[in-house]
Amino acid sequence: MLRFAAKRLALALAVAFAVSLVAFLLLRVSGDLAGTLAGEEASPEEIERIRTLYGLNRPLAAQYGEWLLRSLSGDLGRSLFYPESVANLILDRLPNTAILACLGLVIALTLSIPLGVVAALRRNTWVDRAALGLAVLGQAMPSFFFALLLIFFFGLTLGWLPVSGTESLANFVMPAVALGWFSTPVLMRLTRAGMVEVLAADYIRTAHAKGLPTHVVLIKHALRNAVAPVAALASVQFGNMLSGSVVIETVFALQGVGYLAWEAISRKDFPVVQGILLVVALFYVVLTVVSDLLNAWLDPRVREG
């Protein structure tokens, strides 16, 4: 088990390193950073001055090496635009993204697990078809469109919810529904598939034969086993949500990590983009490692394989 854990950790670190390197290179080939920093209406001399000031004329390897060394000591650098450190900027935005991600996940699980269970129990009936229809609709509809529909209905027509901002918990309701809605289909289909498989297993028949009430068989014996892969997938979905939904945060003007990433990319604020990518990569790495270790602990075949 220890060897397995060490291997997974080493792999995770390699992934984080690769992400930072690729992000660095992509940012450098995406255009002229000095030109962007100087602004659309700057003169060539001004652009050259910026290039020298920010050390953008130095070799790429030197620029990356310096950034990597500083990052390892926890210093992600300073934003080129905000009068703030990258770490402070990310920490400032993280609470909004965390609230949104947690609410989004709760909504996704609240919708997907009961719907998946009902669809499995009423297989090939109209209930199953309706749940499938919902899943297809959820995945097919672009999240910005769904978000705008929510704004139109609950913000504009009914006036129940604030359209944008982060002043209160009410501001998070529509974004969380939009975010959770998008994750619901995949979780629901997985729950349904797991339940269908488990319900056909011998031990379920045995449990029924023992005379256990149906709800005990369903919840204690069937669902518990069926949702194990759902939990693993949910952790990946949670990572996704924690990295911030650029679309949802943009539509609702919610100042989270995704919104910050979008701003930083559009301005080419490369220390911020690199910092966010590193933090997001670490989220994924940690969640994947935890999920892998849990799976290995639960199922010996995983660690032996």
């Binding site: 705008l148 504009l156 944008s164 943009t250 539509v251 003007a253």
Partner: peptide, 13 residues
């Protein structure tokens, strides 16, 4: 507010 439709919705509400 980066999204034009959201700005408009805020103005209308």
């Amino acid at each position: 507010i980066p999204e034009a439709n959201t700005r408009m919705a805020e103005l209308l509400t």
